[in-house]
Write a protein that binds this DNA or RNA. Sequence first.
DNA 1: CCGACACTTCGCCATGGACCGAAGCACCGG
DNA 2: CCGGTGCTTCGGTCCATGGCGAAGTGTCGG
Lengths: 238, 238
Amino acid sequence: MTDPTAPGPLAAIAALIADPARARMLAALMGGEALTAGELARIAGVAAATASGHLARLTEGRLLLVHVQGRHRYHRLASEEVAAAIETLGGLAARIAPVRHWKHGEDARQARLCWNHLAGRLGVRLHARLTGEGWLTPVPGGWDASRDGRARLAATGVDLARAETAPRFACDCMDWSERRPHLAGGLGREIASAWIARGWLRRLPASGEDDILARRRLALTPEGARGLKDGLGLDLAA
Amino acid sequence: MTDPTAPGPLAAIAALIADPARARMLAALMGGEALTAGELARIAGVAAATASGHLARLTEGRLLLVHVQGRHRYHRLASEEVAAAIETLGGLAARIAPVRHWKHGEDARQARLCWNHLAGRLGVRLHARLTGEGWLTPVPGGWDASRDGRARLAATGVDLARAETAPRFACDCMDWSERRPHLAGGLGREIASAWIARGWLRRLPASGEDDILARRRLALTPEGARGLKDGLGLDLAA
DNA sequence: CCGACACTTCGCCATGGACCGAAGCACCGG
DNA sequence: CCGGTGCTTCGGTCCATGGCGAAGTGTCGG
């Protein structure tokens, strides 16, 4: 029935990430965008045929979801858990590996995307602020927002109603550079997209394609800094 | 200078975990004990020669530390980060893999070790209780304990002074079964060891060697349940 | 309807690395 | 000093998997 030589689930998942080409693809997808097979092949540095095989394995292994649109196949990370696992593993790699020089590491520690929500110092400070003021309290399976918290978030352009209709309202995600949880889940996604749409955050151009942080770096704009200070009392200069 | 074909750090770390034999070794070491090369060879189901090679690679890759004692070589996980990464990856595997039946899964979700601290429902509820009452507040790089919090913890037999002298006083670690942080770091280690020493928690015998949870399952004793309720107001039956 | 394009499938090759047995080293006990 | 034990190193085998080009499938644009 069951193959006795079959690798355990832990080894099986790790094996999916362990190939350099696949790792580059996954790292690129940590930016949250859905990318086509062709783009991923280019990023991974392999031929289209090879990339196709890799993407099939990743999809089969439930790490990716595919969205077919015409003759393009868009691939994206399958879930929060996948993003969290890659984030954690990447953090371990950053600490452990013979101190490979992360070119734009400082930027990324400041603010970056973790799949679809905010990470880095910004993400962690935001999490601490929202919970510290009692605006948000963790409850099993999500969050509870106080009246004041709702008003504050709404004032920054976050659509709380939509966040609450997400399959999972919200959850924590461990931040490797800060070693503290940041805000993920449906609410984390809403916040990130709202603030990017509003021009408070700006995606920085990808650089160093094989870098874990390549497509994830963010910059806080002057308006964003002002908005966070006025709206949430969050002063990132401090 | 640098080899252009070299795998990135992410792939390199994943590759270390991706081999079935090595994954079994790492899973066994998640119980927190240091094991000899021979024991690990038996657990992994490979010959001594093979195991030796695997252990050398894991050590070289900074996932393990070795402690030589006479003709034995004791191996243990190198750090909190390693444990956290394996925990997260294992959680992803548990969610993603074709629902492999975890024999004693329910026990382990209740209480288990995560390297050297408490995880599962117990770990998460403890974390929530300590922070919720203001007994412990996260600060950058560790925790701040209130006077009341110190007294409460000391009353349960936890040596706070020793926890504070640990390289890192404390930190969070994401719990995969509960999706909430539990208490790790120096304080987490002190709490777990104190409560096990005091007979509040009991290690359950290993079963199913290749299971991620094999050597990590814990049972709360009646005295433990009473102690937690009286000392910290933590009622796990609820 | 036909060529261009995006992607997959197929066939093949090359290589990395997992594995073992045997031999070599280090340590312990007598 | 010598045999037993724990572990590593060495030499050799074997297989899984990544890699590519070429051919096949489906979709869009004219």
